[in-house]
């Protein structure tokens, strides 16, 4: 009978591979994490608070790397909550979805829209649950600001998204009647990558609006837009040069701008 020799050299070799690989692995992973942080991919840390809000199955889903699918399922619950008129549950679910996917513009945009438009308008007209009109208006205002808060947090997480600035501009314009802020939001939106060309004109349109009625500011903004366009852009139909020119001319006449100071003296 021969004694079985323990393969020490082989075990030593395995230990050596592990010992050599471990620090390289650590450094590589730290580098990857740093790159992802610089690219603003924060990922999701499963905190106790998040864990408490998710069911066990959904938590396992998040931990197994299926965060997007979990967020999609939670989003479907937002629709269910809307159908059951559970506004605060909707608000909580929107917070949860946006915590799970802080880089999804779709959830921030639709979440803000659900609260600031759908819920707010429903609450304003809901005489069955709230006969007092003042109370209804107060509640409607509350939900507009909840939606606004969603947009603002969305912008904090996605500073390069034009869509959220545009939606916030629409909210200020149509729900809050604040044309100065709407103009500012549209202005910010138009400077971001991927923004549609029509947004460039919105700040000036806001200021010339019958409610804001700040013609001087509108004139400045139209002029600024005209001078910002390159000669090639001025020839493109997409930039609406005719509209810009006609607005500038009209305002120059209305404001009685001296001929020598006009953009288009003739």
């Amino acid at each position: 009978m021969t004694a079985v020799r323990f393969p020490w050299p082989r075990v030593a070799l395995i230990a050596l591979v592990v010992c050599l690989w471990a620090p390289i692995k650590l450094a590589w992973e730290i580098g990857l994490e740093r790159q992802q942080d610089e690219l603003r991919y924060h990922g999701v840390v499963v905190t106790r608070q998040l864990r408490d809000q998710l069911s066990q199955g959904l938590t396992i889903g998040v931990l197994a790397g299926f965060r997007n699918i979990v967020a999609d399922f939670v989003w479907l619950d937002v629709t269910v909550a809307w159908e059951k008129y559970e506004w605060f549950k909707m608000d909580a679910l929107i917070n949860l979805v946006t915590s799970l996917e802080p880089r999804s513009i779709l959830f921030w945009d639709n979440g803000g829209w659900q609260l600031a438009w759908n819920v707010s308008i429903f609450v304003k007209d809901d005489v069955v649950h709230q006969p007092n009109e003042l109370r209804r208006l107060h509640d409607a205002r509350f939900w507009i600001y909840r939606g606004l808060d969603v947009y603002q947090r969305g912008i904090e997480n996605n500073p390069t998204s034009y869509k959220l600035w545009e939606s916030m501009g629409q909210l200020y314009q149509n729900r809050l009647g604040d044309y100065y802020r709407a103009a500012w939001c549209y202005g910010r939106a138009s400077q971001l990558p991927g923004a549609p060309v029509y947004l460039e004109r919105f700040p000036a349109i806001m200021m010339g609006n019958q409610f804001a009625h700040d013609d001087w500011k509108a004139y400045e903004l139209w002029k600024e837009l005209w001078f910002r366009l390159t000669p090639a852009q001025r020839l493109e139909k997409a930039h609406w040069q005719e509209k810009i020119i006609s607005n500038i001319r009209q305002l120059e006449n209305t404001l009685k701008v001296p001929r020598e100071k006009r953009v288009f003296p003739n």
């Binding site: 690219l39 990922g43 880089r103």
Partner: peptide, 25 residues
């Protein structure tokens, strides 16, 4: 030191959200 970092691969979620993930990463 021993377990692989699988969480780094959740960068796929960013692609699905429409965010740009550079090829070098």
């Amino acid at each position: 030191l021993l377990v692989p970092d699988m969480n780094s691969f959740t960068i796929v979620d960013e692609i699905l959200d429409g965010n740009v993930v550079p090829w070098w990463h």
